[in-house]
């Protein structure tokens, strides 16, 4: 092995005046920003479409099913290319120009990743709601709740508790999937990784650092969700698992 280890290269100045460790931190910042924003979008969309798919209205069900089918069956990288390169050509010229020139990449990227992740969360939310007994809805309706109120006060609070372990995996996946956004110009962690390798050739050091960085953010998310699971546990209910451990 003739590899020349040099951990100190992180403190060398790169050609933009910053040090390489600052590139890593900047990439990590973008990764976290893209992931958390996408996750927020995905939770909103996933809950909304998941609920639609459990309503008694077949048109609403069809809308929810279509969303899930479309966004779950196309690879993420292809979806991002569709948003970035194809959509601007399909809309009226002025809007297309605006999308290409003025709309920040970040916005398009988080919408793309959010829609992709939301389809997966919609599937989980639907499964969670359907796992509840039909009688819970009846009980809510019999008390005078509207259909929506049965979701708000009765069904969703239990459904979220039931699918929390699955949501934990999904939240961790978002960090990992966010690496794909480098392909549309987001200067996130994986982008910086590629760039640092090109500039310095210190492949092993930077690979180790990047691996740890991804591990830390995903693991922190796992612990956060485990804590939420712990906090939201219902006394007297048979626990489904051991808090994401």
């Amino acid at each position: 092995m003739n590899y020349h280890w040099d951990w100190l290269f992180f403190f060398q100045e790169a050609d933009d005046g910053l040090m390489y460790y600052q590139w890593v931190l900047s990439g990590l910042g973008w990764t976290v920003a893209v992931s958390l924003t996408s996750l927020a979008i995905a939770l909103l969309l996933g809950s909304a479409f998941g609920v639609l798919r459990t309503t008694p209205n077949r048109w609403l069900i069809a809308i929810g099913d279509t969303y899930v089918d479309v966004f779950r069956n196309i690879p993420l990288i292809v979806q991002l290319f569709l948003w970035f390169f194809v959509l601007p050509e399909l809309v009226p010229r002025d809007i297309g120009l605006w999308m290409k020139q003025d709309l920040p990449y970040f916005v398009t990227a988080v919408i793309g990743l959010g829609l992709f992740t939301g389809a997966r969360i919609a599937e989980q939310v639907k499964a969670g709601i359907n796992s509840l007994s039909r009688g819970q809805r009846f009980a809510g309706l019999a008390l005078g709740f509207t259909e929506w109120q049965t979701y708000r006060y009765v069904r969703l609070p239990m459904a979220y508790r039931i699918v929390l372990p699955a949501l934990t995996s999904e939240a961790m996946n978002v960090y990992k999937n966010s690496a794909v956004t480098y392909s549309v110009g987001i200067l996130e962690l994986y982008f910086q990784y590629k760039q640092i390798i090109e500039k310095t050739s210190q492949v092993l050091e930077i690979t180790i650092v990047i691996t740890l960085a991804y591990f830390v953010v995903a693991f922190a998310t796992n612990r956060l969700f485990a804590w939420i699971e712990q906090r939201s546990r219902v006394p007297g209910m048979i626990a489904g698992g051991q808090g994401g451990k």
Partner: peptide, 30 residues
């Protein structure tokens, strides 16, 4: 219907209390 149902009490075979609410919350939420 919600207004009508609110005037008609119903008790179910499997109780159907809301498991994530305390007894007090079950009694007051509606």
């Amino acid at each position: 219907l919600p207004r009508l149902r609110a005037q008609v009490g119903m008790v179910f075979q499997h109780f159907e209390l809301f498991p994530h609410m305390t007894i007090t919350q079950n009694l007051t939420v509606a």
